[in-house]
């Protein structure tokens, strides 16, 4: 119960506890003390946010108070069709994440199975990986127009590479003796892939998906900021044009919530899939 309350107030630092990391410290903290401490930090930050800027004489159009933001959130809900924007951004992030994940993983496995192509293509992969993908957004708008495609493509690109690189890494580092064992059992290449290489890549794939989940929101946001008429990124530029700081803050908060939701879904899947690893299970 307490932990779900803590989750409702995401601060700038995600309060997501990666599974397993806190087990060592649980010696002093009973199961309730830790979530209570996390909740306390959230309350302190929110209270400071509410009272500190006015006390220091910072005007509300620079840093809006919590109550301003709550009021603005209500106004956006009623007058700016907030739900449509929220759902648009969330669905774009989710679709881009899934598409980028499938493409990235697919290419990672394909390159992992063909070392020759991996060697031929690796400099280009590196170059594309380093190139700032969000900078392509204006280009995609010129090519595809002011619709959903540019932001979707940016999101797919942003998600694609960390997953590709992680999967490829796993394919290259899987224990050769495991592969030899499968070969000695006269398994076919397809059997070796599905019974050894693919399951062995799960930890890396999920690590890639975790990174991808956080990047997906960035991709969508940039796409919406650059050219869009819908979505939370659009609300940010709109709020900026009206000097409505509270609106910008609210949109940022909601974007963070979408990112955390995506991340949690991956983390939950990971906990289920990687149950056989002592760290995650314990």
């Amino acid at each position: 119960m307490t932990s779900s309350k803590a989750a409702a107030h995401p601060g700038p630092v995600p309060v997501v506890a990666p599974p397993g990391t806190e087990t060592v410290r649980l010696a002093w903290a009973s199961s309730l003390a830790l979530p209570a401490a996390t909740l306390l930090v959230a309350v302190l930050v929110l209270v400071a946010w509410q009272y500190l800027p006015p006390a220091l004489g910072v005007p509300r159009f620079i840093i809006p108070t919590m109550t301003d933001m709550a009021a603005e959130m209500g106004r956006m809900w009623r007058q700016e069709d907030l739900l449509t924007h929220l759902l648009s951004t969330a669905s774009m992030a989710a679709i881009g994440f899934v598409a980028g994940g499938i493409l990235g993983a697919g290419c990672g496995y394909a390159l992992g199975l063909s070392p020759l192509w991996e060697k031929v293509l690796s400099p280009y992969i590196l170059a594309l990986q380093i190139a700032p993908k969000v900078a392509f957004a204006p280009l995609f708008i010129m090519w595809f127009g002011y619709n959903a495609w540019p932001k979707l493509i940016v999101t797919v690109l942003v998600v694609f590479f960390p997953i590709l690189v992680n999967v490829l890494q796993s394919m290259k580092t899987t224990d050769r003796d495991l592969v030899n064992l499968a070969r000695a059992y006269s398994m076919t290449r397809a059997q070796i892939f599905w019974k050894v290489l693919f399951p062995a890549s799960m930890p890396n794939l999920l690590a890639g998906l975790r990174i991808g989940a956080t990047l997906a929101v960035i991709g969508v946001t940039v796409g919406e900021l650059v050219g869009g008429s819908i979505g939370l990124g659009y609300l940010i530029t709109y709020g900026e044009g009206q000097a409505n700081t509270a609106m910008v803050f609210d949109a940022i908060v909601l974007l963070t919530v979408i990112g955390i939701a995506l991340y949690w879904m991956v983390a939950a899947a990971e906990a289920r899939i990687l149950h056989y690893l002592p760290k995650v299970a314990g």
């Binding site: 224990d175 003796d177 006269s186 799960m202």
Partner: peptide, 24 residues
């Protein structure tokens, strides 16, 4: 054959690991 490393597949139960060689 068997090596110094047990080469058990960590994602499979012991029973499914023993079945592994028979799956081909």
């Amino acid at each position: 054959f068997m090596l110094q490393k047990d080469l058990l597949l960590p994602w499979r139960s012991i029973l499914r690991n023993v079945e592994f060689g028979l799956e081909a």
